[in-house]
Simulated assay, not measured.
Amino acid sequence: MRRCRVSFEQAGLPLILRLTPFSQPDDLDDRLAAMHWHRFDPADVMVLPSLDGFGEPGSSERLTPLSAADYAALIGALRRSSVEEITGHARRLEEASVRHQAFKLERDGVLLACGQVAIDPGPAGTSVGGMAGLFDIFTPEDQRGRGHGHRLCAALLAQARVEGATTAYLQVGAENDAAQRLYARLGFLQGYRYHYRSDDPRAWA
């Protein structure tokens, strides 16, 4: 813990720990709670056991691929991110070890939803299929409640299946009821829940 804290302090960042059911030692979360470390941002990792049934959707909407820089700028503008946050997001996407592809869903030039799919191919020389991850799924506020997020995710999963993925995963806030319902309708099941702890108020402010 001390070495971690030193590294974070040198970077000017608060020390944040992510606690999962697999964290060691088994009682780490209880220890941190006893030390009054604040618990925040619970989220679920959800899994989709099979991509069977996801075909190319027929609709009047247009799915357009975006570069890492263009997507970071788009999602950053929607979330009112700073220039530094947008630049950092684009750099992380460009340097990711697993290939990400971002898309936006439009109709008549109007943005309906946007998101990314990352495809991790299965082990070479085996029959194990790849795994697709959905990231940064976002629907503009004035377009919510119309099924655009569902259609976008279905299209991304269909694309992933074409590229050899057989299963999928995502992460979603435990308190994001609308997104939880959306992913359940797509067939996603809860894998496990995690949360964060920190003793530095900057972490959850």
Rank of each mutant, 00 (worst) to 15 (best):
L63R: 04
L17F: 06
L152Y: 01
T139N: 05
E9V: 05
L48D: 08
A77K: 13
D41H: 09
Q143W: 07
F8Q: 12
S127F: 05
R99W: 07
Y192A: 04
P121H: 01
A34P: 02
R18N: 13
L19A: 07
E9C: 09
I16S: 05
F54E: 02
P140D: 01
P14C: 00
C153Y: 01
L156F: 08
S81D: 13
D120T: 05
W204L: 08
C4L: 15
D52S: 14
V117N: 01
D108Q: 12
R80L: 11
D41S: 13
T87Q: 14
I119S: 00
T167N: 12
L28G: 08
H89P: 00
M1F: 10
W37S: 02
V162E: 15
R99F: 05
A160C: 09
Q180D: 09
A11P: 06
R146M: 04
V172E: 03
M46W: 04
G88P: 10
L66H: 06
V83A: 14
A174E: 12
G129L: 10
S67Q: 07
R202M: 06
E95C: 10
A77C: 10
L32S: 08
A124R: 13
P121V: 01
P14T: 00
D142P: 12
P201H: 01
L152Q: 02
G125C: 03
A132T: 04
Q190G: 12
V162I: 14
R146P: 03
C114M: 11
A34F: 00
E61H: 09
P14K: 03
V47G: 01
G187D: 04
A178R: 15
I16H: 09
L19Y: 04
H36R: 14
L74Q: 10
